[in-house]
Computed example of a mutant assay.
Amino acid sequence: MKKETYLEKLDTQFEHPYIILKRIFDIFFSIIVLIPSVIIVFLFAIIIVIDSKGGPFYSQNRVGLMGKEFKVFKLRSMRNDAEVNGAQWAETEDPRITRVGKFIRKTRIDELPQLFSVLVGDMSLIGPRPERPNFTQQFSEEIEGFEQRLLIKPGLSGYAQVNGGYDITPAEKLKLDLYYMEHFSFKLDFNIFIKTIAVVITGDGAR
């Protein structure tokens, strides 16, 4: 029997009065932060090229709102051949990470290009972290309800990221993301935003 894809499992899109206000915040904040971010990204792009072979950026397909795929762009923090053996998650003390990569991952500087994805509407500042299509399909088959994360726009940061980091399982991530959706509000987004700043300053949870 053919297994359902995550697209076939999706219910009606998540609706909430705060969504419109949230989109306004996303546009306003991303425009303001993109201005200084362009300078930072440009400087580290040069350093990355000097430090290791390959271009300064890399892109991946991710699954967003209602299963729509989009590309995310990041500063490259791993060797150019990091996924020569296929897609895989980063590990603690991953040997594929470059010298510069360790710093930009710890400070989350590698994520700055994704502010453009927030500006154009593929992502939000706060929401469930978008997964790659193959992982989304795998987890939707293995974990009941995993695809429900797609009912809301994915985020640059999120409740699961600041409360679990990289070390939680996909099932644990789902529980935290569902909690976020159940308590969806400006207050919760603001709390996540403050915690995100703390994570960036301390480098907590980085790989």
Rank of each mutant, 00 (worst) to 15 (best):
E4V: 05
S157Y: 02
R207Y: 15
Q60L: 02
K106A: 12
E131S: 05
Q114G: 06
R96T: 04
A160L: 13
A206E: 04
I19C: 09
Q13Y: 10
L178Q: 13
T107N: 09
S30K: 00
F42K: 14
A87P: 11
I27L: 10
L7D: 13
V41F: 12
G205A: 06
F57W: 01
K153D: 08
Q114V: 04
M123Q: 05
G145L: 02
L150W: 10
I19R: 09
P128W: 03
T98S: 11
E182S: 14
F42Y: 15
T169P: 11
S37R: 07
G145F: 07
L150Y: 10
L65K: 03
V120G: 07
S185Q: 11
K102C: 12
T196Q: 05
W89F: 13
E4A: 14
K153S: 13
A206H: 02
R149A: 05
L65H: 03
D122I: 00
L115R: 00
F135R: 04
I192S: 03
K106N: 10
S77C: 03
I201L: 15
E147G: 00
K106T: 09
V33Y: 09
G158H: 09
F190M: 11
R108T: 15
I109D: 01
F29T: 03
N191W: 12
T196D: 06
E144A: 02
F73P: 00
G165K: 15
T5W: 04
A82E: 00
E182D: 15
R149V: 05
R79S: 09
V63E: 02
T107D: 11
R79C: 05
I192H: 05
E142T: 04
E4G: 08
F146N: 00
P154Y: 14
F193G: 06
F139K: 04
S157E: 07
S185T: 08
